[in-house]
């Protein structure tokens, strides 16, 4: 281990780290939006829209992010759609994550027992009240573990961005290894930065999971 090398590389890694986090969180915000929206469409069985959502979810859940990114980054410009690599990265991650989030939110919504709906209606609640004060709070709680798992999965998947020449952590490490052959230092720094990025999310996630878990009726 050569610590001078590490000191020299540090600024490059920090820059890459910031970019990774930026695109990662934009992608995740996008995926949460898509997920909530599509889950509602599926839950309320809106005709046509729910068929489209189903095809989208199956298509993106059954293909790897790398292939999706190659398709949008190299394929789409050929038919005249061209934006920056960063935007493609965020959109790619958003679309992939959206399909996973849809499933998590939908299973949360579907897991709320029918008796809850029936009881709320029997108490004279309106459809709006039923949804906002009975179903939604329970559905959110039920989908927390899956959503946290998805967050970690999506942040991990950002490592694939290096394939479409985004200067993320993976790209920087690969580049520096290729230039100066300081393999050990580069890989150790890579691991440290990923731990730095993901360990807080993992710990915070399990805390939130514990905090939001409450006993369901009948447990």
């Amino acid at each position: 281990m050569n610590f001078e090398v590490i000191r020299d590389y540090l600024p490059l890694y920090i820059k890459a780290f910031m970019l990774t986090i930026k695109i990662g969180w934009i992608g995740i915000a996008l995926s949460l939006g898509i997920g909530v929206f599509s889950a509602f469409i599926l839950h309320f069985k809106i005709p046509i829209a729910s068929q489209i959502v189903k095809v989208y979810v199956e298509l993106f859940r059954n293909t790897p992010l790398l292939v999706q990114l190659f398709f949008v980054y190299f394929g789409l410009p050929k038919i005249g759609i061209s934006i920056s690599a960063e935007a493609y990265g965020a959109i790619g991650l958003g679309l992939l994550g959206g399909s996973y989030m849809t499933e998590s939110f939908r299973s949360g919504l579907d897991a709320v027992k029918v008796s809850q709906t029936e009881s709320a209606l029997a108490l004279g609640m309106s459809k709006g009240q039923l949804f906002t004060s009975v179903i939604l709070p329970q559905a959110v709680t039920l989908s927390v573990p899956a959503v946290v798992a998805n967050l970690i999965f999506l942040l991990k998947e950002t490592s694939v961005f290096s394939a479409i020449s985004l200067m993320d952590l993976m790209f920087t490490a690969k580049d520096l290894i290729g230039l100066y052959y300081n393999t050990t230092e580069c890989l150790v720094m890579l691991v440290v930065f990923y731990i730095f990025m993901l360990l807080p999310v993992s710990i915070l996630g399990s805390v939130i999971e514990k905090k939001t878990r409450f006993k369901m009726f009948g447990d």
Binding site: I152, K156, E157, T158, S159, V160, S162, M170, A173, K174, I177, T183, T184, L187, L190, V191, Y194, I195, L198, L199, S202
Partner: peptide, 23 residues
């Protein structure tokens, strides 16, 4: 399990493929 949970598979691939050779 925590290592596997937070390390991207790509990083693990690089560690084994490039790191093992060197170390």
């Amino acid at each position: 399990l925590e290592i596997v949970r937070i390390m991207p598979q790509m990083v693990l691939l690089f560690i084994v493929y490039f790191g093992a050779t060197k170390v």
